[in-house]
């Protein structure tokens, strides 16, 4: 519990900044809800778009005007934001300690390395969840504030699915960070990795490859439009993301136990 509390406190300022910025952006998006709900331009536009363009932006015909707008603006944003935040938290877990030389203090305490890594992973999971909940509360409050009724539970599942995406990508970054001792380089590499996987997924949405080429990419398992439309967690994709996260964490724990903490 000491390890968990200490790391959560160290990430508190970052969480508040991310939360503040995202809640503000969500409230701005929600404030346009009334205008969007009175116009049917967006659903009509979505229906007119070719199927591959709809797929590219994750749009789905059949959603209400407000749901289409929320999905296109917020859903698209958090699919990038949660993995980026997850990566930053993952790189802070070990790489930052080595880079700042606090690793010598930390690792000469009687700490079990597996527990340390799992506690830091748990903080990452919790922080992305708090960010997601904050966005959902702001979205519901913002839309209610302008007198618009949206798919509240659909939005919740969209955010939950994307939370799992953030956890999976963050877990992969945690695994990679075991071999990276430079915080600046680690941040750059992990963000480049997020960008590459995201771009690859965009390409695959236009020209879908066989399933086995898709399944390993976490971004292939988040579809905000489907989450809202089906109003549930997409269980198959959620399971795939959970497996990716669990596998990455297990490997990170395995290799971290053997990591040489050099001066």
């Amino acid at each position: 519990m000491t390890l968990l509390r200490q790391h959560f406190r160290s990430q508190r300022t970052g969480l508040l900044i991310w939360l503040g910025a995202n809640v503000a952006a969500t409230l701005m998006v929600a404030s346009l809800g009334n205008s969007v709900s009175q116009s049917q331009a967006l659903p009509k536009l979505v229906e007119k778009l070719p199927a591959n363009i709809q797929a590219l932006f994750g749009l789905a015909p059949g959603l209400s005007a407000v749901d289409s707008f929320i999905q296109a603006k917020l859903g698209f944003w958090i699919i990038l934001a949660f993995p980026i935040y997850g990566c930053l938290l993952a790189i802070s877990a070990v790489t930052r300690e080595v880079d700042r030389h606090t690793a010598d203090f930390l690792f000469t305490l009687p700490i079990d390395r597996a527990r340390l890594l799992v506690s830091r992973w748990a903080v990452m999971v919790a922080d992305i969840a708090i960010l997601g909940l904050g966005i959902w509360v702001a979205l519901v409050a913002g839309l209610k504030g302008v007198g618009v009724t949206g798919s509240w539970s659909g939005y919740f599942w969209m955010i939950a699915q994307t939370w799992l995406l953030g956890v999976a990508v963050g877990s992969l970054a945690l695994l990679a960070s075991v071999w990276i001792d430079d915080y600046g380089a680690g941040t750059k590499y992990s963000l480049a990795g997020v960008g590459a996987l995201f771009a690859l997924d965009m390409g695959f949405r236009i020209n879908p490859p066989p399933w086995w080429a898709l399944v390993w990419n976490p971004f292939a398992h988040a579809n905000s439009a489907r989450s809202i439309m089906e109003n549930r967690l997409l269980w198959g994709d959620a399971a795939a993301l959970a497996v990716i996260a669990a596998l990455a964490l297990a490997l990170a724990v395995h290799f971290f136990a053997r990591k040489q903490i050099r001066a």
Binding site: S10, H101, T102, D104, F105, T108, L109, P110
Partner: peptide, 20 residues
């Protein structure tokens, strides 16, 4: 190693604690 570290006090050459 873990039990050993419980009973040892170590002061590293470049002591870096959490400055925040």
């Amino acid at each position: 190693s873990r039990e050993l570290r419980r009973r040892v006090g170590y002061l590293p050459g470049e002591a870096s604690l959490y400055d925040w």
